[in-house]
Computed example of a mutant assay.
Amino acid sequence: MFSFLTSFLPTSYLLPGWLILDINPLIGLLQGLVGACGISVLCSLFRVHLLIEESWKEKLNEGTSSGRSSSNPMRAKHGLFGMLQFLFVTGILAVVGSRVASLVVLEFCLRAVSGLLTAGPESRKFLQQLLVQSQFSLGCAISCSLHFLHEGASQCWLCLLLAAALSWYLAKKAAALLHHVIALYKLHSSQRYCGICISLLTS
C-alpha cells in the first residue's frame, strides 16, 4: 500500500537527492516522533534541574540579600507555539536520513570531547552549555539508532509505534513534572508534604 502511495510522489528528476526519503515515510515519521519526544524529555528535565538549582541559590541568599525577588526566566512552552515547535522538530528528524544523523552525532561527540578537554575550571558551565546544545544531536542519535536496530525487520513499524507511544508518555510525564515544579515547588519544598517535591529536594 505504501508503494502505491509513494508512486504518486515526484521522481528524482524533479527533486534533489537530499529531499528524497531513503526509508518509508511512516517509519521516518515514527522515528522522528521518538527523537522529538526524547528531546522534549531532556529539555523538561534540564529545566527542572535549573529551577531547583535556582531555588537553592535563593535560599542561600535569603540571609544576605533582603527583599530581593528573582524573576524566573524559564517558563514551560504552552499552547500552539510549543506544539508547532514539536511538530517542526519531528518533521526535521523524519526527513534527515540515518547517514546524516550519524554524522551529526559524530560531530557533536568530537566537539564535546575536545571542549571538555580544554574547558579547565569552567567545566561545570561548559557541561550545562553542552546539555543545551545536545538537543538536536540527541534526537538524531535516537532516530538513527532506531533505524539501525530495525533495519531489515519485516514489521518494524509496529515496534516503532510502540516506541513512539512510550516516548510520548514519557514526554508528557516530564512536561507535567516541569509544570508542577514551576507552579508549586517553592511552596511544597518549604512545607514538605508533596512526595514529588520531597524526592526532588532530597536528590
Rank of each mutant, 00 (worst) to 15 (best):
L110G: 09
L50N: 08
K57M: 14
S71C: 13
V105Y: 10
N61S: 14
A112F: 05
L42I: 13
G67C: 01
V95H: 04
S102W: 09
A76Q: 08
R111N: 00
H49Y: 04
L42H: 07
G97W: 00
V113E: 02
A94E: 04
H49T: 11
F46H: 11
L50V: 04
Q85L: 13
K77M: 13
E62M: 04
V113P: 04
S102Q: 02
W56I: 13
L87E: 03
M74F: 09
S66T: 02
G97T: 04
H78G: 15
N72W: 07
H78L: 12
F86M: 11
L106D: 04
V96K: 00
I92N: 03
S65V: 01
E62Y: 05
V113W: 01
S98K: 05
R75Q: 12
G63T: 09
T118S: 12
L116H: 09
V105G: 06
E58L: 05
T64F: 07
G91M: 07
S98C: 06
L87D: 01
L116V: 02
T90M: 03
S98V: 06
L116R: 09
I52K: 07
T64G: 08
L51T: 01
A119Q: 11
R99K: 15
L45Y: 03
S44H: 12
V100N: 12
N61C: 10
L80F: 03
T118L: 09
E107H: 08
S70C: 09
R47Y: 07
V95G: 08
E107W: 05
A119I: 01
L84P: 05
G63N: 12
L117P: 08
L93W: 05
S70Y: 09
L42F: 06
C109P: 02
T118P: 01
V89E: 00
T64C: 14
T118R: 08
L116Y: 12
L110I: 00
R75T: 08
S66V: 03
F46T: 10
Q85S: 15
R47V: 00
